[in-house]
């Protein structure tokens, strides 16, 4: 597998490698688009979703230089079946109602967010690194004394009957399902896709926090509705060159 923005060139490379077209992994260009440097790794994950023990996989990528890696699938591939990876994410896609929205999301059409949209966010790298588990891994903590899961990571237990200090272990919420505790659709918040839909969610197994919701319409959102967490872009801080990513809640679709 190797990326290729042009189908003809992609095929020509296969010919030079002496590969059968049936051996090639789909580039995901027609379903996901051009994901840049993530592309070969996404193709590898997609290949592993269909892989059987003994399969041999060649991964190659190129840019200003090139890398090639050769893998052989082992029996342990059976242990990671049914992970929410490329296939499930593609299946959970939501079609946009209009092309203009797509242009707005991609920052290809000029958008007037109004004066509320003018507040610029400064993103210090030191803070991003320090908080990487909370922001990128949706990692909170679980109290070793009373068992209460809590997000974000706390040093003092939030359970009022416990309050233990520094008795925490890491606890990931990214793979936990949740239900909507409450929500709103906010027309005042600056957004390229108003209304901003967000709310509080209660996680299965404990823990509550508030999140932006995504891939949903206000009319379909209900108190008690099940949701799952999905890793999304939150903002682009252009002066700092930072794409801020974190987690949003989305209806469970696939």
């Amino acid at each position: 597998m190797y990326p290729g923005l042009y189908a003809r060139e992609h095929g020509a490379i296969a010919k030079r490698l002496g590969a059968d077209p049936a051996q090639l992994q789909d580039t995901l260009l027609s379903t996901v688009g051009d994901t840049g440097s993530a592309s070969p790794l996404m193709m590898l994950v997609a290949a592993l979703e269909d892989a059987k023990p003994g399969d041999k996989i060649l991964v190659a990528s190129f840019g200003n230089g090139g890398d090639a890696m050769f893998f052989q699938v082992t029996e342990k591939i059976k242990n990671v079946a049914d992970k929410r990876a490329v296939k499930k994410h593609v299946a959970a896609k939501k079609d946009l109602a209009s092309y203009e929205k797509y242009l707005a999301f991609r920052n290809l059409a000029p958008m007037d967010l109004g004066m509320r949209g003018e507040i610029s966010i400064k993103t210090p790298m030191s803070a991003l690194f320090r908080e990487r588990k909370v922001i990128l891994s949706l990692c909170g903590s679980k109290c070793k004394k009373c068992g209460t899961p809590q997000y974000p990571y706390q040093r003092v237990c939030v359970n009022p009957d416990c309050g233990a200090i520094d008795q925490m272990e890491d606890y990931r919420f990214s793979d936990k399902k949740a239900v909507i505790f409450t929500y709103t659709g906010d027309n005042l918040a600056a957004s390229i896709d108003p209304p901003s839909i967000y709310g509080l969610v209660d996680f299965d197994g404990g823990g509550r926090f508030w999140f932006d919701f995504t891939d949903c319409d206000l009319d379909s959102v209900k108190v008690g509705m099940p949701v799952e967490m999905t890793f999304r872009r939150r903002y682009v801080d252009e002066p700092s060159g930072v794409h801020g990513y974190s987690w949003k809640a989305a209806p469970i679709r696939a």
């Binding site: 966010i121 993103t123 210090p124 803070a127 991003l128 908080e131 909370v134 922001i135 974000p152 709103t184 906010d186 005042l188 918040a189 600056a190 957004s191 901003s196 967000y198 709310g199 926090f209 508030w210 999140f211 932006d212 939150r234 903002y235 801020g244 990513y245 974190s246 987690w247």
Partner: peptide, 17 residues
């Protein structure tokens, strides 16, 4: 930075709504 990334982009009307 942490709150800007993990909290919803809420406003006062939204929070009370």
């Amino acid at each position: 930075t942490k709150n800007a990334l993990i909290m919803p982009k809420l406003t006062a009307p939204g929070a009370f709504a």
